[in-house]
Amino acid sequence: MQLIPCPWCGPREEAEFHYGGQAHVAYPEDPSALTDEEWARYVFFRDNPSGPFAERWSHNAGCRRWFNAVRDTRTHDLLAVYRVGEPMPEVTA
């Protein structure tokens, strides 16, 4: 089974983690000003790149913290992990 390096606990089995979708999706500054279409775009529309993708993961069975990871969607390699609030590191796929 693939090991995912939790930024707090170190490498653990993939089964201990939960996927949380695309990272760095900013909450609208003024949600009430959004049109239905803009709101739908915020809620449902996500990037779907072939290559490095910044995602949120949660170490469910361990420290239960959310963190971010850059995963290559073609190879399922985790290129980098970083804590919430930290900027996305430069990666080379």
Partner: peptide, 10 residues
């Protein structure tokens, strides 16, 4: 001291 899964139980 680790929190982990043992035979699928936390």
């Amino acid at each position: 001291c680790v929190q982990t899964l043992l035979a699928r139980t936390g």
